[in-house]
Amino acid sequence: MEEIKGAIALIGYGLAAIGPGIGIGIVVGNAIQAMARQPEAAGMARTTMFLGIAFTEALALIGFVLFFIA
C-alpha cells in the first residue's frame, strides 16, 4: 500500500458511479415504459422520473464530492 501513488480518489469515484449509473438506467427505462403505456400520465411519470433520478444520483454526487475532499 505504501507504493500507491496518484489520484486514488478517481478509482473511488469510478466505483461510486457504477451503482447510480445502473440505477438511473432502470429508473429512466421504466419511466419510458410507463409513458408509453399511459401517455396521458406522461407528465406525472416525468416528474416522478426526475425525482427518482435525483435520489439515485445523490450517491454519485456524494462520490463526486468525496473525490474533491479526499
Binding site: A54, E57, L61, I62, F64
Partner: peptide
C-alpha cells in the same frame, strides 16, 4: 442530502 445534492448536481 437534499440541499447538498441539489447544489452539487448543478455544480458537478
Amino acid at each position: 442530502l437534499r440541499p447538498i445534492t441539489l447544489a452539487v448536481r448543478l455544480f458537478a
